[in-house]
């Protein structure tokens, strides 16, 4: 294992800003794994730290294939994580909206450029990422539906779901999208949580990545293969939206199978305690995403259901 500084900026009153990478093996740039890019992505950092530890052990045991290089970057934004701020410290920009970056541009464009120059050469790219809305997910692998994706490859993680995301204009500056454009097969790995550690889904993601490395001949791993992944398009998921704002009281859990008509949550008046709305499942399905805050606004997609296959 080699620990390298991938990108560095001189600080004024803080220690220098450093993006650190952990390299395993030499030769073909086989796979790059990226962790937290935003200051609140603690689970993503945790997942990568587990992988660094695991890969270090596998390297010592001779289980990594010679001639294949693995790079893990646990954190692209230590400055923001250390002050628990989601976006960039000074100007509040999001590094994951700056790819492929620009070496003469603004700070976060330079960080994106400095990192992307190193990681764009890899054959596979895996990013632990988070959703813009607070909530809990079924663990899954996500790909941009850009026409360049290979869903069969994504199944090799053995995660319960592979989600294809329709590309929106603002996606074109994310790492995942730019990896694909620069011919890296890119996957986003979603575990259950973001701001708190969830060991169970972190272990599942770790197993998924090691299984993928094994199937690609990059490492020897003999855990269980996981699931036969179901491929779902994000546009085919059924959203359940609130009609009213209030306290959000869920009646189901993520991953639960629900029948049509089942009560998913109740919205409660914040002053008078009355149930002002009951949200029910419009289809037979599985709870894929659930809102994670105690309050909700009106018109908010608080659930996403995967329609159960016949």
């Amino acid at each position: 294992m080699k620990k390298n500084t991938i990108y560095e900026i001189q600080g004024l009153y803080r220690d220098n800003f450093r993006v650190t990478g952990y390299e395993f093996g030499e030769g073909e740039e086989a796979v790059c794994i990226v962790g937290s890019m935003r200051g609140n992505e603690v689970q993503q950092l945790y997942c990568c730290s587990r992988l660094v530890k695991k890969l270090k052990g596998m390297e010592e045991e001779g289980k990594l294939t010679p001639g294949k290089k693995i790079l893990v970057i646990p954190c692209v934004n230590p400055y923001s994580v250390n002050i628990q701020k989601r976006f960039w410290t000074v100007d509040n920009t999001d590094i994951n909206r700056m790819f492929p970056g620009y070496d003469l541009g603004e700070t976060t464009q330079r960080i994106a450029d400095g990192v992307f120059r190193v990681i764009s050469a890899y054959r596979f790219g895996i990013q632990f990422t988070s959703f813009y809305m607070p909530g809990e997910f079924m663990p899954h692998v996500r790909m941009m539906d850009s026409g360049l994706e290979d869903t069969e490859l994504a199944k090799q993680f053995g995660m319960p779901y592979v989600v294809l995301r329709k590309v929106r204009p603002y996606d074109t500056t994310t790492l995942n999208y730019n990896w694909q454009i620069w011919e890296t097969q890119a996957f986003s790995m979603y575990t259950n949580t973001t701001t708190r550690i969830d060991r169970k889904s972190a272990k599942e993601a770790e197993r998924g990545i090691l299984t993928f490395l094994h199937k690609q001949g990059i490492a020897q791993y003999h855990g269980h293969d996981g699931y036969l992944s179901q491929i779902v398009k994000d546009v085919d998921m059924v959203s359940v939206r609130t009609g009213k704002a209030g306290l959000f009281e869920p009646a189901v859990s993520v991953g639960e199978e629900v029948g049509r008509g089942r009560i998913l949550a109740r919205i409660i008046d914040t002053y008078e305690g009355e149930v002002i709305e009951e949200l029910t499942a419009p289809v037979d399905g599985i709870v894929f995403f659930m809102h994670g805050e105690p309050l909700t606004y009106a018109d908010t997609a608080v659930f996403k259901l995967v329609v159960r296959e016949e």
Partner: peptide, 8 residues
Amino acid sequence: PIVDEGSL
């Protein structure tokens, strides 16, 4: 006034 490397 505070700038990082890259700040406009």
